[in-house]
């Protein structure tokens, strides 16, 4: 009865959208077009020849569509290597970040211990310091430890630092979880590790998803660290660094660059389409803390 009524109202509204609704929709559509245009242009250019890009003006639809740019980007410009490097680096970074943030968030939430206040204060104070400030010593230290120009060195640098947001997200979550769960586990004879691994960690689904997404975005798109970590080891370049090298090469290959760019952003756009919720909660978290 009630639902029938509201549907009826809904229909009558839908029949005659007010002027305001239509105007705002057109406004948004126009603005959105401005935002998507560079991607549409890039998409279209990736199916053109370089000559066509130069002569086509504003025409978006390719006259003679060709896939060859994707082949050139993937094989000749080594984006197959860069892509694999990005996948390995990002995956390893995510594993380390989830592990270290969930464990440290857990003990910070559940226990009072000496040094806790100090650790939390240090994490918060250094939260905002720009990476640029710390770049030179990071590179020099990595060089001295033999980590510069190595994959493991890059991964450690990406997963290093404070990772404050994720640590405190886990901490906040564990604080809100009833501690009776752990106490019950202990009565059943579960030790510290058991309680964490089989009682508490499985509950962190949404937090872990948000952490994975945030770290994915940070590591996949990071530019500064991979750039300085792969100066003398081209075989370890990630997609963003490869992109810059490709664009600064001797041969200007516009359609190849566009194809490479689309290949590079495809995974993260796909992730966004399927896990939009976690992207939004991860970013919105910055203002709620």
């Amino acid at each position: 009865m009630n639902s029938k009524m509201s549907t009826a109202i809904g229909i009558s509204r839908r029949k005659r959208p007010s002027a305001g609704v239509v105007i705002s929709f057109i406004l948004l559509l126009g603005l959105a077009l401005l935002w998507v245009y560079p991607f549409i242009w890039m998409f279209s250019a990736s199916f053109k020849s370089n000559q066509a890009i130069l002569s086509d003006g504003l025409r978006l639809l390719p006259r003679e569509p060709t896939f060859s740019a994707y082949g050139r980007a993937w094989n000749e410009a080594h984006f197959n290597v860069y892509f694999l490097n990005s996948v390995i680096t990002t995956a390893a970074t995510i594993v380390i970040v989830v592990l270290r943030c969930s464990t440290s968030g857990y003990v910070l939430a559940m226990y009072d211990f000496r040094g806790k206040k100090l650790i939390e204060a240090m994490l918060i104070v250094t939260f905002f310091i720009p990476t640029g400030t710390m770049l030179i010593p990071t590179v020099l230290m990595s060089k001295n430890m033999g980590l510069l120009n190595t994959r493991i060195g890059l991964i450690l640098a990406l997963a290093g630092g404070g990772q404050v947001a994720s640590t405190f997200m886990y901490k906040g979550f564990f604080q809100q979880t009833p501690r009776e769960l752990v106490e019950a586990g202990e009565i059943d004879g579960a030790g510290f590790l058991r309680c964490f691994l089989s009682i508490m960690l499985p509950l962190t689904g949404p937090i872990t998803a948000t952490t994975v997404i945030l770290t994915f975005m940070g590591a996949w798109n990071n530019f500064m660290l991979p750039l300085v970590f792969t100066f003398s080891n081209a075989a370890l370049r990630t997609l963003p660094v490869g992109m810059m090298v490709f664009s600064k090469g001797d041969m200007v290959d516009y359609s190849g660059q566009c194809a490479a760019a689309l290949l590079s952003i495809a995974p993260i756009v796909l992730a966004y389409v399927f896990c939009q919720k976690y992207f939004v909660s991860g970013i919105a978290g910055a203002i709620k803390s």
């Binding site: 997609l239 963003p240 810059m244 516009y254 590079s264 952003i265």
Partner: peptide, 13 residues
Amino acid sequence: LTTSAIIGVVFIM
């Protein structure tokens, strides 16, 4: 979602 390295290259074009 798009890394600055790509935004840079695309906007140069």
